[in-house]
C-alpha cells in the first residue's frame, strides 16, 4: 500500500509521518503542496506543522493549495485521509471535517504526552484498535480547542464520529473533550495529538500511535 504524505511550506512532521507509514509496513510517498497530483496513492496523511506560518488562520491558506483540490476529490471517492494537528486544522478549513480549531482556552502552547481514548473503531484509521482503547501520544499545539455549534457536536456524538477524546484533563478547552473526529463515512479522520510521534518507545512515550497507520492498511479502496 502507498500512502502519500503532503509537505506544505512550514510543515514540520512530514518526516515522522512518513516514518510511521514505513513502520506500519506501507510505502510512504512524498506529495508536494503545489502539485495537482496524488501520484496514485491509496491514502493520504496531512501532517502537522505551521503551514504558511499560520497566517490568516491555522490551516486556512494550505486548505486552498493545489494538492488539496485533489485530496478533496479523492476523499469524496472514499480515499482514507488523516489530518494530524495542523493537518486536522487544514481538513476543517477545507470543509472535509466539521468544526474549527480555536486558540487554547489557557492561551499557552501545550506540549505534553497526552492520554486519549479511542471512541470509535468504525473509521479507516482506527479499525485495528479496540473500542475504548487508551493510548498515550504527544500533544503539541497552541490552537487545538475544537469548537463547533451545538447541533454539529450533537450530530458528531450521535453518529459516533467522535473518534478520540482527551483523558486525564482537557488540555485546551475542546468541546466535550474532543481530540479527534471523522467524516460521516469514517474515511477522513482528524486529530490534534500526534500518533506519528508515538510509534517506537525509543523516540516516543509509547508505540500506541502505530495503530492508526496499521489500521489504514486494511481500508484502501478496491
Amino acid at each position: 500500500m502507498r500512502i502519500g504524505v503532503i509537505t506544505f511550506p512550514g510543515t514540520l512532521d512530514d518526516v515522522d509521518a512518513a516514518r510511521a507509514v514505513r513502520y506500519a509496513g506501507a510505502e510512504p510517498v512524498s506529495l508536494w503542496h503545489a502539485d495537482h497530483d496524488l501520484a496514485g496513492v491509496d491514502a493520504v496523511v496531512v501532517p502537522g506543522g505551521f503551514s504558511y506560518g499560520d497566517y490568516l488562520r491555522a490551516g486556512a491558506i494550505a486548505s486552498l493549495a493545489p494538492i488539496m483540490t485533489e485530496v478533496k476529490d479523492a476523499a469524496r471517492r472514499g480515499m482514507p485521509v488523516l489530518g494530524i494537528c495542523n493537518g486536522f486544522q487544514i481538513l476543517c478549513e477545507a470543509g472535509l471535517l466539521p468544526g474549527a480549531l480555536a486558540r487554547n482556552s489557557g492561551l499557552h502552547f501545550v506540549c505534553r504526552d497526552q492520554r486519549l481514548r479511542i471512541e470509535s473503531t468504525a473509521t479507516a484509521w482506527t479499525g485495528a484498535a479496540t473500542a475504548g482503547q487508551e493510548i498515550l501520544v504527544p500533544l503539541k499545539s497552541g490552537e487545538g480547542r475544537f469548537v463547533a455549534d451545538a447541533d454539529t457536536v450533537a450530530r458528531l456524538e450521535g453518529e459516533g464520529r467522535v473518534v478520540f477524546r482527551y483523558l486525564g484533563g482537557n488540555p485546551n478547552g475542546a468541546l466535550a473533550d474532543i481530540a479527534g473526529i471523522s467524516s460521516a463515512d469514517g474515511r477522513v479522520v482528524g486529530l490534534m495529538p500526534h500518533p506519528e510521534h508515538a510509534i517506537d518507545p525509543l523516540t516516543g512515550p509509547s508505540d500506541d500511535g502505530l495503530v492508526l497507520f496499521t489500521s489504514v492498511l486494511g481500508a484502501a479502496v478496491g
Binding site: 490568516l56 488562520r57 468544526g99 480555536a102 469548537v147 455549534d149
Partner: peptide, 8 residues
C-alpha cells in the same frame, strides 16, 4: 470563503 471562517 477566505478572510473569515464562518464556523467561528
Amino acid at each position: 470563503e477566505l478572510l473569515a471562517n464562518p464556523v467561528i
